[in-house]
Design a protein around this nucleic acid. Structure first.
Length: 691
DNA sequence: CTACTCGGGG
């Protein structure tokens, strides 16, 4: 049996700064464990180009106030239109877009625009792009058309850019098609816009046309097309462009390299990504960020964190991207200590107001049930978006505070934020976890009625779970039948769980069969049915399920739980005897068991632990989560909550035991298991004993 | 005048 691992015992990170690729064997094996158990990749939903932040225009030196003299209203009325144009150009130079647009309104109202030139339109484009103002785009463009100004290629390109950046792709396309002449900039502006709006195939089509016409493209072209292949997930296409870029001698270009790292990373070729990174003549901040994000994306959280330390030592500048990624990694590793450091770094480097990093922090604290901290960070954020709200609402829901989740949801509506499908998922599951079924139904019905968000299959799965918790299996079935979708695996899984909780064999078998058809390789489906048979006393059928598993060659995995103490993660296997503190740990478990047996604890042998092999079932008393908890209790002060991560679902026996352990020790214990968070507090769990 | 990296269910 493998030993509990203790990582980076010395304070030095896992790997040296000079060679980020070489992990210590310990790091490797821990990482492979993490990956093994927690390999769900983060889904990436690309932000729309609208939401992307603008790169700030380089600031000009000098005192803005002194150089831009803002005219009084009375003066402006007397000024000629060329004077106003001059003012607009100056204001834009100093990023004062709003004022520039106010002046434009004066032009619009009082002048025909006959002497407004290309430079002013150029400035107005910058203002519209800076403000992301769709209305502004249309006004400026119409004004130009009406004034009879004939734009040259440069100005046309700028107008094209303006439409693309403001998300007006149809208008941009019309503009592009009607342009009398087009250069590579026009093409790349259009193609870049298509990539931003995730129309990758169309981008490639245009790229091929452009290639035919010009047979030319600089490093920017390649970087964009690499991003397009990343979006399509086609590593072969990406490779072709890579070799093309090499042939043209721009393989070393910073932007090309960064795009390549990202592309190989997203396509799953981490080695290739690392190779490109190693080849970079100068490792820039973006390069580091990309490689760190790649490792993080594939669950190599330890390596990613080590790379971050390598980056710090290398002297590369840490930016808000870096810190956002690191916080996200901490959320995975449940590493409060590292997260605190990252939080501090965020403030120290002057990114304390960055919305992404702060949202990642809210998410981090929410995930681990530190709702006071999450709320605190949230309250201090000067600007919040829907993602920030969603993270907070989901946090309350996941940790059993359904009322607060609903309250935040309502506050969000009051502040005029438009909820999206993720918001509803968070608030509906919160209602379900906390048994607020009436409220849940109200919100479910209000989705399409009041908020124009069509319920997706996941929302239906959520409502099925809600019904299942109330034991309303017939209604759950009816909901599946009446849903506008083909029933999805999530819906059947919710029904199967409901059947296990309510011991409904007939329906359970049906749901299980449907699931087997959809995901025959997924172990936990079989285990849920197995547990259902066991709890109904159908031992013969249960054995049959085990036979099926053997026939399909599906093996139960070793359950592993890990906990972080003083920045070091420790992993435990079931019945693990390898840790140097094993004596204390086992004594602690034994003592705890004795103590909780005074509080109505009865050892339960019926349930099989999902995803765990048979031998391990027999040592119920020493399941990995119990060992991790004992270890945590020994090694942390009594006011610290314990945070445990594991890839398997908690078994019924552990769940009961941990509730009581939380009660007798007065500790908060948070377990993130394969399906959800369990927040144990004073004898009860946030999941409401339903999982 | 156009490029690269970050945030929310499952």
């Amino acid at each position: 049996m493998e030993i509990a691992l203790s990582l980076h015992k010395s304070q030095t990170p896992l790997l040296g700064s000079s060679c980020p690729g070489n992990l210590s064997p310990l790091g490797r094996s821990f990482a492979s464990k993490v990956r093994h158990y927690w390999s769900r990749p983060f889904s990436r939903i690309c932000c729309s180009s609208m939401e992307r932040r603008l790169k700030p225009r380089p600031k000009k030196i000098g005192n803005v106030e002194r150089q831009v003299t803002v005219l009084e209203d009375s003066q402006i009325r007397k000024t000629s239109s060329s004077g106003i144009c001059c003012q607009i150009e100056k204001l834009v130079l100093y990023n004062r877009y709003r004022e520039a647009m106010e002046l434009f309104e004066i032009l619009e109202l009082g002048y025909d625009g006959s002497d407004v030139g290309g430079r002013t339109y150029d400035a107005l484009v910058s203002a519209c792009v800076g403000l992301r103002s769709i209305r502004g785009v249309k006004r400026v463009y119409n004004y130009m058309i009406n004034s009879g100004f004939e734009p040259d290629l440069f100005v046309m390109n700028r107008f094209l850019f303006m439409h693309v950046k403001c998300g007006l792709m149809l208008e941009a396309r019309n503009l592009f098609d009607e342009m009398p002449e087009r250069d590579t900039v026009s093409w790349m502006t259009m193609i870049g816009g298509l990539v931003d709006s995730r129309k990758f195939s169309e981008a490639f089509r245009l790229f091929l046309c452009m290639w035919e016409e010009f047979n030319d493209g600089g490093s920017r072209t390649f970087a964009t097309m690499i991003r397009a292949s990343a979006g399509l997930g086609l590593v072969q296409v990406g490779r072709q462009i890579h070799s093309c870029a090499l042939k043209r001698g721009v393989g070393d270009d910073n932007f090309v390299s960064c795009a390549l790292i990202d592309m190989y990373g997203k396509c799953g070729s981490i080695d290739d990504a690392h190779f490109v990174f190693d080849q970079m003549p100068e490792k820039t901040t973006v390069g580091w960020n990309s490689i760190i994000a790649t490792y993080a994306l594939h669950g190599y959280s330890e390596e990613a964190l080590s790379l971050y330390y390598g980056m710090r030592d290398s002297g590369a500048a840490i930016d808000h991207f870096t810190i956002s990624i690191v916080i996200r990694i901490c959320a995975r590793l449940a590493s409060l200590e590292y997260a605190k450091q990252a939080h501090a770094a965020l403030v120290r480097h002057g990114y304390g107001t960055d919305i992404v990093a702060n949202t990642a922090l809210v998410d981090f604290y929410s995930k681990w049930g530190r709702m006071e901290n999450a709320q605190h960070v949230f309250n201090r954020m000067s600007c919040k978006n829907i993602i920030s709200w969603n993270a907070l609402i989901a946090g309350y829901g996941n940790h059993g505070q359904g009322e607060e989740a609903v309250e935040m949801f309502e506050q969000m509506l009051q502040e005029g934020m438009i909820p999206n499908h993720v918001t509803f998922l968070a608030v509906l599951s919160a209602c379900s976890y906390s048994g607020l079924s009436e409220r849940g139904w109200e919100i479910f019905h209000s989705m399409s009625r009041d908020h124009k968000v069509k319920p997706r299959a996941m929302h239906y799965a959520c409502m099925i779970e809600l019904l299942g918790r109330e034991g309303l299996l017939d209604e759950a079935c009816a909901l599946i039948r009446s849903s506008p979708f083909q029933p999805t695996k999530n819906m059947w899984a919710a029904l199967l769980t409901a059947c296990r909780m309510n011991e409904n064999l007939e329906l359970g078998k049906l749901a299980a069969e449907k699931l087997y058809g959809m995901e025959p390789e997924k172990l936990c489906n079989y285990v849920v049915l197995l547990n259902l048979y066991n709890s109904c006393g159908k031992l013969k059928e249960a054995a049959g399920v085990l036979q099926t598993l053997k026939r399909k060659g599906l093996r139960m995995l070793s359950a592993c739980s890990w906990i972080e103490i003083k920045k070091q993660p420790y992993a435990f296997l079931c019945g693990d005897k390898s840790h140097s503190q094993r004596k204390e740990i086992y004594e602690k478990v034994d003592n705890l068991m004795v103590e909780i047996s005074r509080h109505d604890y009865v050892e339960e042998n019926e349930t099989l632990l999902p995803d765990v092999n048979e031998e391990e079932q027999r040592i119920l008393k020493y399941h990995s989560e119990k060992l991790a908890i004992a270890f945590g209790l020994i090694n942390t002060p009594h006011w610290t909550p314990l945070q445990i991560t594991q890839g398997h679902r908690v078994c019924g026996d552990c769940h009961n035991a941990i509730k009581l352990i939380a009660k007798v020790t007065g500790r908060e214990i948070v377990i993130r298991d394969a399906s959800r968070f369990h927040h144990f507090r004073n004898g009860s769990c946030s999941c409401g004993d339903y999982w």
